[in-house]
Nucleic acid binder design. Structure first.
Length: 262
DNA sequence: GCGACAG
DNA sequence: ATCTTGTCGC
């Protein structure tokens, strides 16, 4: 297979990135700031955004940066922007935001400028929030840069602060009985960094939800749960996952998935 | 043995 | 992330 152009990072880049994470981390707000977040039915929440970068098969450079906005609570597609981009930074664990973040921030800002009435009130981000080696994952990054509430939704446990995907953890997963069941991810420091969430009755593998920005963990988990028809919450799942959608011109609208029950 | 490591 | 072989785990 063709070796990808994954150039080594210039010396000192990681130090700069760490410094930037530390600076931006000081701006994270890890509590509810919006009225709808405290409402049991999320009354007042009308639009939920989902952000993701999906790759072209066998290529670690060409990718599609996409933003989907769904109505709430019906989860119908209001807007979708999918733009082909060339990723420059390599993937370095703990620094995902520096690879994918800029394109996703762009997508949000384009929408806010051109169609502000469709702007999301909260962002679901594929990756972690404060559940991160330095407490500042890609979801925090997007939240701070857009000043929107954001939530990190990861599909795998990032082993940080003593958290381990070990036998005990797997046993806790096994004990999650029904959709909506959770257990806290408590780091060695005693802080609850996130929650493992069984997002659906028929889903064995949990989601790892953590605060990104301007939202409490409790509200974040509740919202993710309420956005799940299947394992992956709709705003993130709606992102193009097959090559067919990647070939679409930017800004084109896609049909919603068939709705189960209004 | 050579480990963990979101996407 | 994607592809892929394989079949336990500390």
């Amino acid at each position: 297979m063709a070796r990808e152009a994954v150039r080594r990072l210039p010396e000192g880049t990681l130090s700069l990135w760490k410094r930037e994470q530390a600076v931006l981390k000081a701006r994270v707000v890890d509590r509810d700031t919006e009225a709808w977040q405290r409402d049991p039915a999320f009354s007042g929440l009308l639009r939920v955004g989902g952000l993701d970068v999906s790759f072209v098969k066998g290529d670690s450079v060409s990718a599609c940066a996409s933003l989907v906005v769904l109505s709430y609570p019906k989860l119908e597609v209001l807007y979708e922007d999918c733009r082909m981009v060339s990723l420059t930074a390599p993937y370095v664990p703990g620094f995902l935001a520096f690879r994918e973040g800029p394109f996703l921030v762009d997508a949000v800002q384009r929408l806010q400028e051109k169609e502000p009435h469709l702007s999301p009130q909260v962002l679901l981000v594929d990756g972690n929030g404060v559940l991160h080696p330095r407490g500042f994952g890609v979801a925090c990054h997007l939240g701070v840069h857009t000043d929107l509430p954001s939530i990190g939704v990861a599909k795998k446990l990032l082993q940080v602060d003593g958290l381990e995907n070990n036998a005990l953890h797997k046993e806790k997963i096994r004990l999650l009985q029904a959709g909506g069941d959770t257990f806290p991810l408590t780091g060695g420091s005693g802080a609850v960094l996130g929650m493992a969430l069984r997002s659906h009755d028929h889903s064995t593998k949990p989601l790892y939800v953590s605060v990104g920005h301007k939202m409490s963990l409790e509200a974040a988990v509740r919202l993710v749960r309420s956005c799940c028809r299947f394992r992956i919450p709709e705003p993130v799942r709606q992102e193009p996952e097959s090559t067919e959608t990647k070939d679409m011109p930017p800004g084109r609208l896609r049909r919603a998935h068939p709705q189960s029950r209004p």
